[in-house]
Design a binder for these strands. Structure first.
Lengths: 341, 341
DNA sequence: TTATAGGATGGTAGCGATACCAAGAGAACG
DNA sequence: CGTTCTCTTGGTATCGCTACCATCCTATAA
């Protein structure tokens, strides 16, 4: 009673069966299915008829082995449970599907070692391309990528030296721009709440951007204005409360994660703190929610969908024959000024 | 310059190479990797050394073809862009990974024809199991599943007659329970806002549940109290406003989608309508957001994570040898009474 | 000691498709 | 009318691994 027994529900029609029943050679069946234009009308009709009659499903595993070509792309995200990745995944999935590719998804849980294990596993499955939502990798990952030569897209941040291709925005620039924006609006005591920094280059970059902007604004860099919080609504609220308590003069808070920002906003509503009267709130990433909350929340719009789309397009082009070259695309970002600041 | 050329970054070490370098037969390598206990300590060490030296990655495509066994499970969801599926996907992904399986994800965009095309495609990839977030299928899907005999999990709703295995809650019962709950709280004019009904048995079931509850409560079934809205915050707000305008006596609104409910809540905040003073709001699905919004929102807690986990567990058990049997698991739901009602 | 079982290895034959080359059938040409 | 060229079609040899069976070796029993 192996898995095998289960898979064969008694059918398992193969190409040679179709060929026999259609009165043609297996090669003709193969061609009729993959490149109909190379086969005469008559043959194609015979094959199509037999395929329909038996409900034949070509075995892509065999096809891939034989052609040394696969149509599955691997994607590794830190967490599936995050709507921010969802937009990107959707876009990738759509572009791939339109080009006959499939998507294998795995999540690394923000752990670099797990990323390496997953890259290995996906490569063993012989994926034809890889999308990594991460730009710092273990040596193992770099070696594997180099050795196998699979096309790789890195995203989530703009690496100085991409493994292969990168499509992203700069977390550093985005955080800097938002902080500068707050400064321009007249805020002088700006708190910063970051997601965990460990194993996460994105968070680290954002924090650097925040400090860079403070410097440019001529504001003091006060480390006690920076709080690290795990994701979640409550954590955002808690962080804001702590900041306000330790810094009575705080006039704005920049949250490097949209859920944190919304959590903070709710906390303000609960406590009756006017936003932005008592404290201004700025967020990172344009969650739909932020446009509808009361007040609406100032944030950075990151073109997540575009990132996904362009990543998949680059990958597909390469798989379809484009010559390999290091590409680094900066999709940029946009500050969306709303009521909360 | 085929894709092939790209894939061979110059390496492509195969099992026989490892065997040669380790001074053993290919079969021993195969066994050392897949069932180390069937190989002597000495052999295993030789093999491991060679594997590490060359950075050998077994070719699972070849393995699958040869063994007629695959370790990839296919998942089809209506849309990836929905945090509600995200919880389930995460759970599935985790369980599968812990058992050495991988996940191929596709989205049907709520179109049954697309679902069929995807089932075909995934079956052609020879996935060893299928999870469908949908319980009404085309004949084509039913035939394919029957013919190939792949284990299938249906979820998203409790089908009367599952294709194979089903893990879900009852949309009908859930909607009925919430409507009854509102009735018990004393609300008498309860609006209902549903997601699009077309090709979506879940929405349809929820609506039936709403009407069933009204009947039990002895309340009139007024079709004009039911509004169909595409998903989205704005649509939720719009729907509520329309309901209130056409039914001045409306005292509660039940939204069959969490985003709609939150949109309505924001609209109330904007208009200064007290919730639940002016109108009570109830939601479907326990988005984290609802627990933190102001006011917190009464809703139905659907154990999405558990659904994913149990689905994957059932699948894995079957793949590991459990005998096939129709299984239908009702994971239930829970009413979470909060401030909004 | 010889017989016998059982565990560890190796050899061989596929898995179901595709690549590549050879062969046959017409069409176009001088 | 034969030759060359192009378009279709078919045969054969893999692709890289695993199933299955044969073989061998060592340990235990008789």
């Amino acid at each position: 009673m192996s898995r095998k027994a289960k898979r064969n529900g008694g059918d398992d029609i193969k190409m040679s069966d179709i060929a026999r029943h259609a009165g043609v050679s297996p090669m003709t069946v193969s061609r009729a299915l993959r490149a109909p234009s190379t086969v005469s009308e008559k043959m194609r009709r015979k094959v199509d008829a037999a395929v329909r009659e038996f409900g034949y499903l070509p075995n892509r595993i065999a096809g891939s082995l034989s052609s040394k070509r696969s149509n599955v792309v691997g994607l590794i995200v830190p967490s599936i449970q995050n709507s921010l990745y969802a937009n990107m995944i959707q876009a990738i999935s759509d572009v791939l599907r339109a080009n006959g590719f499939h998507l294998m998804i795995a999540n690394s849980g923000h752990r670099l070692d797990d990323e390496e294990a997953l890259v290995s596993a996906l490569l063993a499955q012989r994926v034809c391309g890889l999308v990594l939502h991460n730009t710092t990798h273990t040596k193992g990952v770099r070696d594997l990528v180099a050795k196998t030569g699979v096309p790789v897209i890195e995203t989530g941040n703009l690496p100085a030296e991409p493994l292969d291709m990168a499509v992203s925005y700069s977390n550093f620039e985005a955080a800097r721009a938002m902080t500068a924006h707050l400064g321009r609006l007249g805020y002088r005591k700006i708190g910063f709440v970051t997601l965990p920094l460990r194993d996460n280059d994105r968070s680290e970059e954002r924090r650097r951007g925040y400090f860079a902007a403070l410097k440019e604004l001529g504001l003091p860099a006060d480390p006690s204005l920076v709080l690290e919080a795990p994701g979640g609504f409550s954590e955002g609220g808690d962080a804001l409360v702590r900041l306000v308590q330790t810094h009575p003069g705080l006039d704005a808070a920049f949250f490097a994660g949209d859920v944190l920002a919304v959590g903070a906003l709710f906390e303000c509503q609960r406590r009756g703190w006017a936003v932005p009267g008592r404290v201004a709130i700025a967020s990172f990433d344009d969650l739909d929610l932020l446009r509808h909350a009361v007040p609406t929340v100032t944030t950075l719009r990151i073109p997540r969908h575009e990132i996904g789309r362009r990543s998949a397009e680059l990958l597909v082009n390469r798989l379809l024959g484009a010559s390999p070259e290091r590409i680094r695309i900066d999709v940029g970002f946009e500050i969306v000024q709303r009521e909360s600041t």
